[in-house]
Amino acid sequence: MGIKTEPVRKDKRTCLYERHVALGATMVSFGGFDMPLLYQYAGIAPEHMAVREHAGLFDVSHMGEVTVKGPDAERYVQHIFTNDIAHAPIGKIYYGMMCYENGGTVDDLLVYKMAENDFFLVINAANIDKDWAWMQQNAKGFDIDLQNRSDYYGQIALQGPEAEHIMETVLNLPCSELAFYTVKTIGDVIVSRTGYTGEDGFEVYASHEYIQQCWDKLIDAGVQACGLGCRDTLRFEVGLPLYGDELSEDITPIMAGLGMFVKLDKEEFIGKDALARQKAEGPARKLVGIELLDRAIPRHGYPVLNMEGEPIGEVTTGYHGISVDKSVCMALVDAQYAALGTDVQIQIRKKVFPGKVVKKQFYSKNYKK
């Protein structure tokens, strides 16, 4: 598997843990949580293709949720977030990063505007403690109520071309009016048209009890349960980054090709000066896509070489793409080798395989705009 996991230890368990075990899931340690890797003994391909062709159900209750409310809520979020939420309409969702002063990435996240000066932030599971400490540290001088609600919310993601129909008929959650990257509340339930698979889909945030009920209804209706394995292959194929692979303290949004989410025309945000400088000068390393001219599979950390055999970078994520039937990877390489069409090589154990720099999006997204 390409996704980095660890042997299961005494990690946190989501509110759906017992249901994963009952379904025979292979459980692994990921981001401090005991999570399902896959449910199918035949591998992750059936789960992956269920999302591409029909619908798949993910437990994403390990993600973190932080609320920001109060007179200075918008000003605070603007201060810590690279994207621009000024004058954002209620119900709009923004993707972006939190960065250190040197431009390195604290985390990538979603910011939901729930009401005026009322924001809902969704952060990565492995970064909850670090992000929370960083948010508190940078909250001084702002009149806000900052709350870590990660232990309260359970979360599921229903992804795929049939997701809207299933949401409305099985869960009785009206959602057809939601545009891509918008949110609404139904009582205490938060429903957004978001996901990380490249397909249309929804994410539902609510109490543990409600999320358990939703899961049971969807499984009883025959929806395919999906684990971390295909969550990684799905996001990878459409060029979406994973923190720890394509973004990190050492990999800035500019290096990762995510400059469109860094609004340098904003008055200020943490890391702005460093990112502006890097964008103007050009980063020393860039994230690229590489297609191998072979069926060998590149994995995280494998060296990328130039045609003279000299190291020029390393693979961040690699698979034999399930939807595209090609061996492809994303890699961070020296900027001079980042142009499309550049010939490179990837060292896989003791052998070297030829490849070519291509666009990072190996499979076309199918969002409902």
Rank of each mutant, 00 (worst) to 15 (best):
M1V: 15
G2S: 12
T5L: 00
L23H: 09
D34S: 15
M35N: 03
P36F: 02
L37I: 06
L37K: 03
Q40F: 11
G43I: 10
V51C: 00
R52G: 07
A55Q: 04
D59T: 08
M63A: 07
M63L: 15
V68W: 12
A73I: 12
A73G: 09
E74C: 13
Q78R: 13
I80V: 15
A86C: 08
A88L: 05
K92E: 15
E101D: 13
E101Q: 12
T105G: 05
D107P: 01
A115V: 08
F120P: 06
L121K: 00
L121V: 13
W132G: 06
G141M: 06
D143S: 13
Y153K: 03
A163Q: 05
H165N: 13
I166G: 00
M167W: 08
M167I: 11
T169K: 14
L171M: 06
N172Y: 09
P174E: 08
C175T: 09
E177I: 07
Y181I: 12
D188V: 09
S192E: 04
S192H: 03
G195T: 03
G195W: 02
G195F: 01
E199F: 06
D216P: 07
A225T: 07
A225F: 04
D232V: 08
T233D: 07
L234Y: 01
F236D: 00
E237H: 08
G239I: 06
Y243F: 15
Y243R: 03
Y243G: 00
E246Q: 14
S248T: 10
T252Q: 04
G259M: 11
M260N: 12
V262S: 05
G271F: 12
D273I: 13
A274D: 05
R277C: 10
A280S: 12
V288T: 02
I290G: 02
R295Q: 12
R299M: 14
G301A: 01
Y302F: 15
P303D: 03
V304C: 04
N306H: 11
I312P: 10
E314M: 14
T316W: 10
H320P: 04
S327A: 13
S327N: 00
C329S: 02
V333T: 04
A338R: 07
I346A: 03
V352A: 08
V358G: 01
Y363M: 11
